[in-house]
Write a protein that binds this DNA or RNA. Sequence first.
DNA 1: TATTGTGGAGAGTGTCACTATCCATCTACG
DNA 2: CGTAGATGGATAGTGACACTCTCCACAATA
Lengths: 219, 219
Amino acid sequence: MRIAELSDRTGVPIPTLKFYLREGLLPSGAATAVNQAEYSENHVRRVRLIRSLVEIARLSLGDVRSVLDAVDDEHVSMHNAFATAQDAMVPRRERDGDRHAVALAEVETFVRRHRLRVRPDAAVRDMFADALSLLGEFGIGDDQQRLDSRMFDDAFSAIREQAAFEVANVPDSGRAEQVEYTVVGTIASEIATAAMRRMALEHESAKRFQHAPARRRAT
Amino acid sequence: MRIAELSDRTGVPIPTLKFYLREGLLPSGAATAVNQAEYSENHVRRVRLIRSLVEIARLSLGDVRSVLDAVDDEHVSMHNAFATAQDAMVPRRERDGDRHAVALAEVETFVRRHRLRVRPDAAVRDMFADALSLLGEFGIGDDQQRLDSRMFDDAFSAIREQAAFEVANVPDSGRAEQVEYTVVGTIASEIATAAMRRMALEHESAKRFQHAPARRRAT
DNA sequence: TATTGTGGAGAGTGTCACTATCCATCTACG
DNA sequence: CGTAGATGGATAGTGACACTCTCCACAATA
């Protein structure tokens, strides 16, 4: 397949594909002549992965590159590649030193209490800490519960089951495919979960705050 | 308080505050002279809300404005303001018409099965549909389960309980405060949930794929 | 053989979220 | 009272980012 078909199959414009090629996000096709190359199904898959990371997970191209590097580096184990990809999927931002350190300590108690194998330097800790800081800043939830991070314990047991199920379902295929599967699974389930949360919140808000429910039945 | 103190209290540089004032994201202070104004605690709170929406929820300033407008418009009920804010918190993007329509139909069956009061045009439906499309595109999960969207039913009951708890905990304060509380609560709990999911995934991935567990105990 | 498509490279574009500079006051300190 | 520094307000400029355009020599296709 040549670039026009790759473009048709993925819906990504040719100039953008050329840009990804130049940036090294997309490997070059197999050259058949000085200005001709053959692209494969792998290229289609890779383009789709890039677009999913950019559009759905809203990663920067730099972070997409980190994820792809982790997927592609055969010297890195499946688990380490996944860990690296996870780190790349946490947005980098400046954090207030003191406040963040306190929140990180709360995260640590959470990790210890649940005996989780989460790297001490995992970016996801910063992410959790951000959420805890935010709750604290706006005085949401019970202070004591938040401080020893018991606030989410009930929710966590359900989350944990779901995660165990997801990881168990990763196919016994090649390393790169497993990493890709896990990365896409992470972001898709995460967005699905967030969407369900928001629908449930809208529903509960309607029940509590909206006095004239919009019923399906006509008047 | 004058602008220097507002800057100190929030950690946002003065030029940025001036920019927010110009953009109408931040209301002007009470003028005490032609070039003097007095800012209040409400301004501090508003700046913190803006920064949270920008940095944590990663909203564009345009979407932040939509949220703030919903918070501020006294003519809009608490529930409607929250719904508008929720819509603003779903990233807008171009979606493939056909594929997206199919996914939206799956979302509809989900909404009906759980008898949820979610507006037919709620942006969160697009968000859920994105996640379902992505799962389909990469062949993740069981096809049939995904199609009638039963795949997430177990997870949903836990999510729903948590959401009910959250809404029940919204204080009986003023409308604007309730909207603000709910908006911040939504994004904070969402990020906390995502972070917990990722930690659980890392843990499960370590259990399944990493053969030499990094134990706390020394050798 | 003429048109269209291709790979590759450089330069240009539009958006976004600030950031810098000015200026005519105003405030506060000495 | 005088003056250094801060303030509110406006206009213009910046840097990052993710493309998008234009060109070229050459290949494929009708």
